[in-house]
Design a binder for these strands. Structure first.
Lengths: 121, 121
DNA sequence: CAAACGTATACCCATATGGGAATGTGTCAA
DNA sequence: TTGACACATTCCCATATGGGTATACGTTTG
């Protein structure tokens, strides 16, 4: 069965580092394929293929400009990812609260006995 | 080269639907492998394998309980995903603003002629 | 029209994936 | 100790992936 097709959803499309690079590059504005190949240091066919995946999940839009093709980001499909991940924000915040509490206790204990506390790193 | 190893980062780990299901199930609290196999309707080895991936990227922690193993979520690695996706929040908000503008115009045009506007849905 | 340019596709291939089935390992019960 | 139980690991395999290279397609230029 292998992994679910990467063209299925934004989760998979974005799991590929190169595709994230492409989106990051496009975040600055429209770019042609040649621009992307240059910035990514990747061959043109590979870039086109990644762009195809991104297009199929709706993460980028294309516009014809003569013999060039200008791509632009469409962040909308990322909403699903964002929404899902956001659910776990609470969980890691709890973790950090715990760490903060421990640090707090340590700091108090230290300041209680000494004036010099271990603040460095 | 195939795709980057799924055990590499949270992005890849979470790209797999089953693993997201596992995390969602664990979001309610600690669960044993058997609980997960039951909820996911997936065979035990597969669940264990997914858990391994999740463990390797730090998305879950394990605790021994007799002959069982209790897993719990650790959302921290999702921070990176959250942070990356959040960058694009602006982009889709812009999109929605555009849609909102259009809707606004339509609404105004409609209210100009009629009293009943399409507010439903 | 032909040549050059910018992209998209097709094809080949090494590799990772995820499910299925069998087996290994550690723990509790009799 | 033996057997049942819970889980992890291993092996097998069909398939998807992503890069490399060659090539097809559409557009602009001469």
């Amino acid at each position: 069965m292998a992994r679910a097709a990467t063209t299925t959803d934004a989760f998979n499309a974005v799991a590929e580092p190169r595709r994230r690079e492409i989106l990051d590059a496009l975040a600055g504005g429209e770019l042609a394929v040649s621009d992307l190949t240059e910035r990514l240091g990747l061959a043109q066919p590979q870039v086109s293929k990644h762009l195809r995946v991104l297009r199929e999940v709706g993460l980028v839009d294309v516009r014809d400009d003569g013999r060039r093709r200008l791509y632009r980001v469409n962040g909308v499909p990322l909403r699903a990812v964002h929404a899902w991940v956001a659910q776990y924000e609470r969980l890691w915040n709890e973790r950090f609260d715990l760490v903060a509490d421990v640090l707090d206790e340590l700091t108090q204990a230290a300041t209680a006995g000494e004036t010099e506390t271990t603040e460095g790193d």
